[in-house]
Amino acid sequence: MIVFVRFNSSHGFPVEVDSDTSIFQLKEVVAKRQGVPADQLRVIFAGKELRNDWTVQNCDLDQQSIVHIVQRPWRKGQEMNATGGDDPRNAAGGCEREPQSLTRVDLSSSVLPGDSVGLAVILHTDSRKDSPPAGSPAGRSIYNSFYVYCKGPCQRVQPGKLRVQCSTCRQATLTLTQGPSCWDDVLIPNRMSGECQSPHCPGTSAEFFFKCGAHPTSDKETSVALHLIATNSRNITCITCTDVRSPVLVFQCNSRHVICLDCFHLYCVTRLNDRQFVHDPQLGYSLPCVAGCPNSLIKELHHFRILGEEQYNRYQQYGAEECVLQMGGVLCPRPGCGAGLLPEPDQRKVTCEGGNGLGCGFAFCRECKEAYHEGECSAVFEASGTTTQAYRVDERAAEQARWEAASKETIKKTTKPCPRCHVPVEKNGGCMHMKCPQPQCRLEWCWNCGCEWNRVCMGDHWFDV
């Protein structure tokens, strides 16, 4: 396979590697080409510095992935760790964990309700045991953590790749202090920090972006993250068709209702045909949960890209028209025109101005929308079919299609509260000796007794199943 190397943020060049090629071997190839010592090179990928003893497969490097290699003399205490030698983080029983690669970060837990604080980093599902597709590297999971809308060759929703760059020099040479644990960490600028490894760059702020994971991409090709779309790892039924499908869209209502993408497309087109989208002054033209839940309008309007190009163009047109109407304007009634106009409040005669090729020149009556006339309008008909009709959803289907309910059931079956801080902690095999993952707590306690870890627990039921 081919990976592209950008040395000291210059133009990239291809390097041929195998899945079992080590990072140090990659350094040696680059060092020979650039005429520099291999031990002064640092390989940066997806916000993480890659260790010498890791392989291309370990690092989730795919065909035509772009890695950054910078030349920086080692500072005291760094060289041993980078070589894969006596790194205290690798000691058996050590409590410190390697910062998780962005290629394996899962933010789907952050669609849980606000009262489930902490689960994004504490609760991990076991539903990723799908067998890898044919042709994928051994052991590589097909679980997708992110979804994007690819405006490039795909023109559809695709699995996405999370990447990070330095907000100062805009190069992907920043190593994160810690990985993101929720969508806010990724979507809110300057929320996460790190250290830029580019020479002479003092940058410390992280800037995240997404790429389409279905095809090789260049540095400049980015895609918009659709953070309401998630892999259906909890096997929730769709609120409309009641099938279990994946991926799904999880509405931001209190129940976190789930809808499959085909039904979401149908829901949007139906509402669009009836012009029953909601115009929100802050958000724009949007839709609420299909069950009509309060405070559930979709905030990231790129989710409506699921409509496809033709329907999305209609959505944008109707949204612009609705904006004009909300501002007190009118639409030209001549067939084939429909231009938005903003006449004076007491102006009865409205002319669709033909300047700049935008208007048709038609003069019409503001009251009856017919060709302009003197005197009273002959008839004014009330528009028919403008009443909002509820999208029919079966109550039982709505009850079963809740992301929140599956989460709470998982928590109930696989977790116990920490005796000190009461945060839910998952036990997935292993011994009875637990350690609270909350940095402010870190209590060592017994899963069996529910009390602080002691010699009695150690001698009596340390390794009970």
Rank of each mutant, 00 (worst) to 15 (best):
V5W: 02
V5Q: 02
R6Y: 04
F7C: 03
F7T: 02
N8S: 03
N8H: 02
S9F: 04
S9W: 03
S10D: 06
G12P: 08
F13A: 03
F13C: 04
P14Y: 03
E16M: 07
V17M: 04
V17G: 00
D18N: 12
D18R: 07
S19Q: 13
I23C: 02
F24M: 13
L26G: 00
V29Q: 10
A31L: 00
K32F: 10
R33H: 05
G35V: 03
G35R: 06
P37W: 04
P37G: 06
A38T: 10
D39M: 03
Q40P: 03
L41P: 01
I44E: 03
I44G: 01
I44R: 01
I44H: 03
F45D: 01
A46F: 04
K48G: 02
K48R: 13
L50K: 00
L50D: 01
D53W: 04
D53H: 11
D53Q: 07
W54N: 05
W54I: 06
T55Q: 06
V56I: 14
Q57G: 13
Q57P: 04
N58R: 12
L61V: 06
D62M: 13
Q63K: 09
Q64E: 13
I66V: 15
I66C: 11
H68R: 01
I69K: 00
Q71I: 04
Q71C: 06
R75D: 13
R75A: 10
R75H: 12
K76P: 15
K76R: 14
G77P: 13
Q78I: 14
Q78T: 12
Q78P: 14
E79K: 09
E79Q: 10
N81P: 14
A82R: 12
A82F: 11
T83R: 11
T83M: 14
G84R: 10
G85R: 09
G85C: 12
D86R: 10
N90Y: 13
A91Q: 11
A92Y: 11
A92R: 13
G93I: 14
G94S: 12
C95Y: 12
C95N: 12
E96R: 08
E96Y: 15
R97V: 12
Q100P: 11
S101T: 10
L102T: 10
R104M: 09
R104S: 14
V105S: 14
S109C: 06
S109W: 03
S109L: 03
V111T: 14
D115G: 07
S116T: 11
S116F: 05
V117I: 10
G118A: 08
A120G: 15
I122H: 15
I122Q: 15
T125A: 14
T125I: 05
T125K: 13
D126M: 07
S127Y: 10
K129N: 12
P132D: 13
P132S: 13
P133F: 11
G135P: 12
G135K: 13
S136P: 11
S136Y: 10
A138R: 12
G139M: 13
G139E: 13
G139K: 11
G139V: 11
S141E: 14
I142C: 11
I142W: 10
N144A: 05
N144Q: 10
V148K: 00
Y149R: 01
Y149D: 03
C150R: 00
K151L: 11
P153G: 08
V157G: 02
V157W: 12
P159V: 08
G160I: 00
G160F: 01
K161L: 11
K161Q: 11
R163G: 15
V164K: 02
Q165K: 14
C166S: 02
C166F: 00
S167G: 11
T168M: 09
C169L: 00
Q171M: 12
A172Q: 14
T173N: 11
T175G: 07
L176P: 07
Q178C: 07
C182L: 04
C182T: 10
V186L: 07
L187M: 12
I188C: 08
I188P: 05
P189V: 05
M192I: 13
G194I: 07
E195P: 05
C196M: 01
S198M: 08
P199T: 10
H200C: 09
H200N: 14
C201T: 01
P202T: 12
P202G: 13
P202S: 13
E207K: 07
F209G: 07
K211S: 14
K211N: 13
K211Q: 15
C212Q: 02
C212A: 01
G213N: 10
A214M: 10
S218K: 09
D219F: 07
E221V: 07
T222I: 09
T222F: 10
S223N: 07
V224H: 09
A225H: 03
A225W: 04
L226V: 05
L226I: 03
H227G: 15
I229T: 03
A230T: 11
A230Y: 09
N232S: 01
N235E: 09
N235I: 03
I236M: 06
C238R: 00
I239L: 06
D243Q: 15
D243C: 13
D243G: 10
R245N: 06
V250W: 01
V250D: 00
C253N: 00
N254H: 10
S255N: 10
R256P: 01
C260A: 01
C260G: 01
C260E: 00
C260Y: 01
L261M: 08
F264Y: 04
L266N: 15
C268W: 02
V269D: 03
T270V: 12
R271I: 03
N273Q: 04
D274P: 00
R275A: 00
F277I: 05
F277W: 10
F277K: 00
V278I: 12
D280P: 00
L283S: 11
L283H: 11
P288G: 14
P288L: 04
C289D: 00
P294M: 07
N295D: 13
S296K: 01
S296Q: 00
K299F: 04
K299G: 06
L301W: 05
F304D: 01
L307G: 04
G308N: 06
G308S: 05
E309I: 09
E310Y: 11
E310I: 08
Q311H: 05
Q311N: 06
R314G: 00
R314W: 02
Q317P: 01
Y318A: 02
A320F: 10
V324W: 04
L325V: 07
M327A: 14
G328Y: 03
G328L: 03
L331Y: 03
C332T: 03
P333K: 03
R334Q: 14
R334M: 14
R334A: 07
P335H: 06
P335Q: 08
G336I: 06
G340Y: 05
P343M: 08
D346G: 09
R348T: 06
K349D: 05
V350Y: 04
V350I: 14
E353P: 05
G354D: 15
G355M: 12
N356M: 07
L358S: 15
G359A: 10
F362I: 07
A363V: 13
A363R: 09
F364P: 02
C365V: 02
C365D: 03
C365R: 02
E367L: 11
E367A: 07
C368S: 02
C368Q: 02
E370L: 07
H373V: 02
H373S: 02
E374W: 05
E374R: 06
E376S: 13
E376R: 11
C377E: 03
C377T: 02
C377L: 02
F381P: 06
E382Q: 13
A383N: 10
S384P: 11
G385I: 08
G385P: 08
G385L: 09
T388E: 14
Q389Y: 15
Q389D: 13
A390F: 06
V393T: 07
D394V: 05
E395R: 11
R396F: 13
A398N: 10
E399Y: 11
R402T: 10
E404M: 11
E404L: 10
A405K: 14
A405F: 11
S407G: 07
E409A: 08
K412P: 09
T414M: 09
T414K: 10
T415D: 10
T415F: 11
C418T: 01
C418I: 00
P419T: 04
C421M: 00
H422I: 07
H422Y: 10
V423N: 15
V423D: 12
N428Y: 13
C431V: 05
C431S: 14
C431W: 03
M432A: 05
H433L: 04
H433A: 06
K435N: 15
K435T: 15
C436V: 01
Q438G: 04
Q440T: 12
C441D: 00
C441Q: 01
R442Y: 07
C446S: 01
N448F: 08
C449D: 04
C449Y: 01
C451S: 15
C451K: 15
W453P: 02
N454M: 03
N454I: 02
G459R: 15
D460C: 05
D464E: 15
V465H: 15
